[in-house]
Design a protein around this nucleic acid. Structure first.
Length: 588
RNA sequence: GCCACCUUAGCUCAGCUGUAGAGCAGUGCUUUCGUAAAGCAAAGGUCCCCGGUUCAAAUCCGGGAGGUGGCUCCA
């Protein structure tokens, strides 16, 4: 962010935000004396505070509360802290049930508690981290932003409180910069661009979370899927195909039904056994492996299928392409001998690296989820495989120099996993690729291979998806490129504009030559002004605009305008060669 | 699912109790143009849906659906 001439340290900014949270609570209490206070921490862009209030807070209330807070800031109130015992704290916060809840929790570890007072207007239970005086808070660097519902302690079963969010920065300029950044992000929002560029739509009559793709969006999808399919097939993956509905029986074997029944859309087949739309593919893959005998020689067996899953996601969760009810996965299951795990995972990491490089995803990190050694009973499978594979995973990631984070105890009960988290342009985290070891499904489906001693052995399964979900990946791609896709992905790669109808024939010739070369070209008839057609092409973010007129026809050239607005005349054949090579090289 | 807000033409939005408006897109005609908007014309709406209040509702109230931002969830 610009304006880094500011001398405010991150720690100081945190103190300012934290202090503002207290001032917000003080302002709320002034307006609603019966308000019950929750917690008020700092967040990445400011702070929030949770309240139980007699009525819903309105945007007008926010303005009023903000004014009250400014009044407090200008009063130059000191923040003073002191230690109290749990009993004292309980007396001080007798009217505040949520604070009592916190006191009960904290006092179990026999620590002293601290309370902070702001002048004589407010007192809060708090571990500290404030400015010494409200005069240190820039009065124009903060703003109450929005209101949301939030469950006490983040638990759905608890009472829902009203959370008031505030933005807070070290200066008015920094606040403005932040707001400007959000506005820029809005411009590249994939839902907005999806509509403008005619990529996809969601239709009420069809249902929320069920996107439909227009031709341009479908080309994007197909290009993406072909890319990933080719990559896999070059690396020894073999395609399989599976139907989209199944008897519930399958999920009884896999054990999924007991756990996630509510997520699975049931199908009514008129009195036959209960069927479901498939919410996942793993059990199908297991069955295909199981029904033919396997020798140790043929392992690893790498099955792949790009297929759509259907899940009941809560309505409030759905959002554009990033959270849908019909999601297509580039799903792979690799059946390996335990001694092949390391090699196989390393091959997968190669693929992840190649794919991210292709899309220019530099900013990602890896979450390594391992088992909790203090809680061994929670996990199934061979202890040695657990220990070895976790060490291997960590080693492999380290070797590549990727940022990572080890989540001890975050592994699934069936095996450790690697999740690849991509940070988008505005700093949000998105989980894309996942690689998971599974020692459970091979056991439940009684998968086997015959070893060199003719004995039955159990393989390990590695689940793997690189895009994760085609829909989510597309959503992220749209925002990553702000709709300006690299040439190999662009739904329309070049559009040809004859200056007037006199040059229609030459334009058509140009169009045919491009199409023959496999370029996705478009021909724009001359019944609108040239300026207007250029404008339209720019708005559709088409990589190359080819203008042809008298000069070009005579010389056999095209006038190429790129997305930067720069023009260059070149022979048609030369341009085709250039664009072909860019498509082949997947130039960013 | 929960909390708050939003829903008017294909899109972006104005109108906020007195029988619905603009720009763009689309259609027709004219224009045939040298790098981000040529001109004219006609057309386009159960003002999300269902109830209620009112002489009168796009506008006020209740319920529902969908969306946005959060919360929770995400094999």
């Amino acid at each position: 962010m610009p304006h880094n001439e500011s001398t405010t340290s991150p720690e100081k900014l945190d103190h300012i935000r934290h202090s503002l949270a207290h001032l917000l609570a003080a302002a709320v209490l002034k307006e609603f004396p019966d308000a019950k206070l929750g917690i008020g921490p700092t967040i990445e862009s400011g702070f929030y505070y949770d309240f139980l209030l007699p009525r819903a807070v309105t945007p007008d209330d926010l303005k009023m509360l903000e004014k009250t807070m400014r009044g407090f800031v200008n009063k130059k109130l000191p923040f003073t802290g002191r230690e109290v015992t749990a009993a004292e704290a309980k007396k001080l916060f007798a009217e505040q049930p949520f604070k009592l809840d916190l006191i009960n929790e904290f006092s179990t570890d026999s620590k002293k508690l601290t309370v902070y007072e702001t002048g004589d207007i407010f007192m809060d239970l708090c571990r500290g981290g404030h400015v010494e005086n409200t005069s240190e808070i820039p009065a124009d660097g903060f703003k109450l932003d929005k209101i949301a519902g939030a469950y006490w302690r983040g638990d759905e079963k608890n009472q829902q409180l009203q959370r008031i969010y505030g933005l807070a920065f070290e200066s008015k300029e920094a606040l403005k910069d932040y707001e400007k950044m959000l506005e820029e992000a809005k411009k590249r929002d994939h839902r907005k661009l999806g509509k403008e560029l005619q990529l996809f739509t969601i239709i009420d009559e069809i249902g929320p979370g069920l996107p439909l793709f227009y031709p341009k969006g479908a080309i994007l999808r197909r290009t993406l899927e072909n890319y990933i399919t080719d990559l896999q097939e070059q690396r020894g993956y073999v395609p399989i195909w599976i139907p989209h509905i199944t008897k519930g029986e399958l999920y009884k074997i896999s054990g999924h039904l007991d756990k996630y029944d509510a997520m699975y859309p049931p199908m009514d087949l008129k009195g036959e056994a209960k069927y479901y739309l498939k919410p996942m593919n793993c059990p199908h893959f297991m069955m295909l492996y199981k029904t033919i005998p396997h020798s140790y020689r043929e392992l690893p067996v790498r099955y792949t299928c790009t297929t759509t899953n259907y899940r009941y996601e809560k309505s409030g969760e759905l959002s554009g392409l990033t959270r849908v009810r019909a999601l297509t996965q580039d799903d792979c299951h690799v059946f390996v001998r335990p001694d092949q795990i390391e090699h196989e995972i390393n091959l997968m990491l190669d693929m992840v690296a190649e794919v991210y490089k292709t899309f220019g995803f530099d900013d990602f990190w890896v979450r390594i989820s391992t088992h909790d050694p203090a809680n061994k009973d929670k996990y199934i499978g061979d202890q040695k495989i657990w220990a070895d594979s976790e060490a291997t995973l960590t080693e492999l990631i380290k070797k590549r120099g990727w940022k990572y984070d080890i989540g001890v105890g975050e592994a699934a009960f069936y095996g450790p996993k690697l999740d690849f988290i991509f940070k988008d342009v505005i700093g949000r985290d998105w989980q894309l690729s996942t690689i998971q070891l599974d020692m459970n499904l091979p056991q439940r489906f009684e998968l086997e291979y015959i070893d060199e001693n003719s004995e039955k052995q159990r393989p390990v399964v590695i689940h793997r998806a690189i895009l994760g979900s085609t829909e989510r990946f597309l959503g992220i791609l749209i925002e990553h490129f702000a709709g300006k896709f690299p040439i190999w992905l662009a739904p329309v790669q070049a559009t040809i504009l004859p200056i007037s109808e006199k040059f229609s024939d030459y334009a058509k010739k140009t169009y045919d030559a491009m199409t023959d070369a496999g370029v996705r070209a478009e021909l724009s008839a001359a019944n609108e002004s040239l300026g207007k057609r250029i404008r339209e092409a720019e708005m559709m973010k088409i990589p190359y605009v080819l203008v042809v007129g008298e000069k070009e026809e005579a010389a056999g050239t095209v006038n190429v305008r790129d997305r930067k607005g720069e023009e260059k005349e070149m022979p048609l054949a030369e341009f085709i060669k250039k664009i072909e090579s860019e498509i082949k090289e997947k130039t960013l």
